[in-house]
Design a protein around this nucleic acid. Structure first.
Lengths: 184, 184
DNA sequence: ACCGTTGGCCAACAAGTGTTGACATCGCGC
DNA sequence: GCGCGATGTCAACACTTGTTGGCCAACGGT
């Protein structure tokens, strides 16, 4: 086979995302990734430098949280749930991060950065106090991540079987409350 | 040093719990555990047979969910939150399972078993339909695990900083709603 | 005082890891 | 055609992993 370097780089990156999403950082070996990509392990090194840098590339992504302030306030919770369900199912990077962030400090730091840089600012638009916005964003994150954990990773049967609209109907009000409810 | 075999076995088990809780299954190596215990790695093998069996012993535990039906119904959510905060902070096995269940299939299966065998029965006491009880238990688990994930593992600052009573005040009503709210 | 049992350590194994460098092979510009 | 850089392969490295078996030393009953 003979390809342009950017092509093979993309192939490797795709294989890495799948592997890391399925196995996490430690068990996602360079050899297995190279094998999935049908390529020699040394190519992975050549194009990405090290396993860490490959992981960084594979877990680089954007939450793409929409501008929620523009919605009628009572719809924000449901919109958030829908957005994250979509995001979760079409971008493996989120799974990569969750699978790896639990055992790998770099990945955990990356998640904190995404939380602070991408979710928190959205919440800050609703609440002036940054501390309060932080708590509310943290609570929302805990429910979103916890649900993804149970549905996509631990695969608790009742959680897996819920329909998309069931999920929205159950989690939407929870997030709405974390947004609106006066602090205790 | 010279000890009785049950003593050293307990020492090894304690070290294993700590290691697995901190590093998860893959990175919690037998050598590191033996080192923490001040003991030769071969002893670990002798007393536990294999890494898998050691892990099984280290992650064996009881949720100890109290008999919630005996409480005034409107206090169940708060009681659940308090119970799990306690449970989480005094038994490392929960952390072991969460850290490992994300990348290790055996550990995930163990979590499903605990969910189905220890949390679900409690919910079933409140709702006759097993499917409905399953969904409600799954939602509760998603919020509980997600919060633990953000507080103890990913360490999102605002979530770490919340006081115990803040947590109860925020999460209690969420769990209460997953228990009481009519299905959508 | 002896000897078997018991608790402990050491060295080694086979397998798998990230990583490296030397070598082959293709394709384009001269 | 020739050469050269880009693309790809192979074999090996140093290291870590779980696991094994042999050896040592202390104890306890006789």
């Amino acid at each position: 086979m003979r390809r342009t370097s950017t092509e093979t780089k993309a192939i490797i990156l795709a294989a890495a995302r799948e592997r890391f999403a399925k196995d996490g950082y430690e068990r996602g070996t360079i050899r297995s990734i190279a094998n999935d990509a049908g390529i020699d392990p040394s190519m992975v090194m050549r194009y990405f430098g090290s396993k860490e840098q490959l992981f960084a590339a594979a877990s680089d992504f954007d939450l793409k949280v929409p501008r929620l302030v523009e919605l009628p306030r009572e719809q924000v919770g449901g919109a958030l749930v829908r957005h994250f369900l979509d995001r979760w199912e079409d971008d493996e990077a989120l799974m990569v991060l969750l699978r790896s962030g639990v055992t790998n400090d770099d990945a955990a730091e990356r998640m904190r950065a995404i939380f602070a840089g991408q979710l928190l600012p959205v919440m800050t638009e609703f609440w002036v106090s940054p501390e309060e916005a932080g708590r509310r964003a943290g609570l929302a994150a805990s429910q979103i991540l916890g649900f993804a954990l149970c549905r996509y990773i631990l695969r608790f049967p009742p959680v897996v079987e819920m329909s998309r609209e069931d999920v929205v109907a159950w989690l939407g009000p929870t997030l709405q409350r974390y947004l609106d409810e006066p602090e205790p």
